[in-house]
Computed example of a mutant assay.
Amino acid sequence: MTANFTFQPLATCSQTKARAGIFYTPHGVVETPRFMPVGTLANVKTITPDQLKQTGAQMVLSNTYHLHLQPGERIVAGGGGLHKFMGWDGPMLTDSGGFQVFSLSEMRKITEEGVTFRSPHDGQIINLTPEKSIEIQNTLGADVIMAFDECPPYPATRSEVEAATARTYRWLERCINFHQRPDQALFGIVQGGVHLDLRAKAAEELKKLDLPGYAIGGVSVGEPPELIAQIVKATAPLLPYNKPRYLMGVGTYREMAIAIAAGVDLFDCVIPTRWARHGTAMVQGERWNLKNAKFRDDFQPLDETCPCYTCQNFSRAYLSHLVRSQEILAYTLLTIHNITELVRFTQKIRQAIINDTFASEFASWLDWSTADQVVM
């Protein structure tokens, strides 16, 4: 059902499990490893699709749960499908809605059939099942769609995680049976919480299904970063070498570098847009709070090596002024820069893998003993 989707590894790192590759989709190629910006409601907040393309982004993520609630998948389909509706002609991925539903906590009820919850928009009772999630995603029309899974919280008991992981597999089988569109690749999701043996078992079971791609889910839900790294290092190498590997919800320099060293190809995270809306820039992996007085009369660009529109045209002082004035332009300019920053980071790693210099060139980002810095 996925003849249009192939993953071609091009180069590997001799000292790690990192690889550079190409993921082919009906809407174009994705050069991996690659950071994917999040466009939750069929838009990446505060910027246009053309501005997004200028950041170097190749693949964008949208959210099944939120689009189902507003405007509804039928509206999106009536607008020509997700690509045309939002004006993005490159590859797209939709998540299953599972994480958002399970984050509702007391507002939802989980059964073997699916999840029942009350819409935060109008109070309507909604039943989201594996079949319904796939139906919504088939209607939206993204290139890659995700299986509906149960994301256990952190912390959780081992028995709770075991139950969620087993249900995730049963739900995946239902997703596969219901999936209808050959122009969409259905990815499975490895759950298992912090238990490496459960992760290994889940990965082995998913491999047998020969899916077009695989994701590592259930991280970034409250665990310390070191534990996330342990999970990823143990899980990623277990997934098929000739299929793309996607780590969900991760997007800092260090997290991505460590995951890439384990063999991960794709990442998504709301960090670049969320930080931008809080007046924060990411500069070579550091967080800069532009409300800091030191930036008020600093007329350098954020990063003189950065080719983005923001760095090529505006100073730190101007950006600080916009942030302090709560001007919308501040969020646009910072989003452009922050996304460019993360995409460039993965592009640089890709080239280093091809040159076989990744382990040495990015050694500082592969070590958790050096904390990420914040300029307050």
Rank of each mutant, 00 (worst) to 15 (best):
T2D: 15
A3R: 08
F5S: 00
T6C: 10
L10W: 11
C13G: 15
C13F: 04
K17F: 12
K17Y: 04
A18Y: 08
F23A: 02
P26Y: 08
P26M: 04
H27G: 01
H27Y: 04
V29S: 12
V30A: 10
M36D: 09
P37C: 07
G39L: 01
T40H: 14
N43M: 13
V44F: 05
P49E: 00
D50K: 15
D50P: 01
Q54A: 15
M59S: 08
M59W: 05
V60F: 02
S62Q: 02
L67P: 08
P71T: 11
P71Y: 11
G72D: 06
G72S: 06
A77M: 06
L82E: 09
F85I: 00
D89R: 11
M92T: 12
L93H: 14
S96A: 06
G97M: 08
F99C: 10
Q100C: 01
Q100Y: 00
V101Y: 02
S103W: 05
T111S: 14
T111Q: 06
F117D: 02
S119L: 01
D122L: 02
Q124V: 02
T129I: 03
E135D: 13
N138K: 06
G141K: 08
M146P: 07
F148E: 01
P152D: 08
E160T: 08
V161Q: 09
A164T: 11
T165S: 00
R167F: 13
Y169T: 03
W171G: 06
H179M: 02
Q180E: 15
A185G: 12
L186N: 13
G188K: 10
V194I: 15
V194E: 10
V194L: 13
L198T: 13
A200R: 14
A200N: 08
A200H: 13
E204R: 14
K207G: 12
K207N: 15
L209A: 11
D210C: 08
P212K: 02
P212Y: 03
E223H: 12
L239G: 11
K243H: 12
P244N: 05
L247M: 13
L247D: 03
G249P: 06
Y253F: 11
R254P: 10
I260M: 13
D265L: 01
L266S: 01
F267E: 08
F267Q: 07
D268G: 00
I271L: 15
P272D: 02
R274E: 07
R277K: 04
T280Y: 05
T280I: 15
M282C: 10
E286W: 00
W288G: 06
W288P: 04
D298E: 10
L302K: 14
D303S: 09
E304M: 10
C308R: 10
C311L: 03
Q312E: 07
R316H: 13
Y318E: 08
H321C: 04
L322C: 01
R324L: 13
A330L: 01
T332H: 11
I336K: 06
I336M: 12
L342A: 11
V343C: 03
F345Q: 09
I349E: 07
I349L: 11
R350Y: 09
R350M: 11
I353C: 13
N355P: 04
N355H: 14
D356Y: 10
A359C: 01
S364H: 05
L366P: 02
Q373F: 03
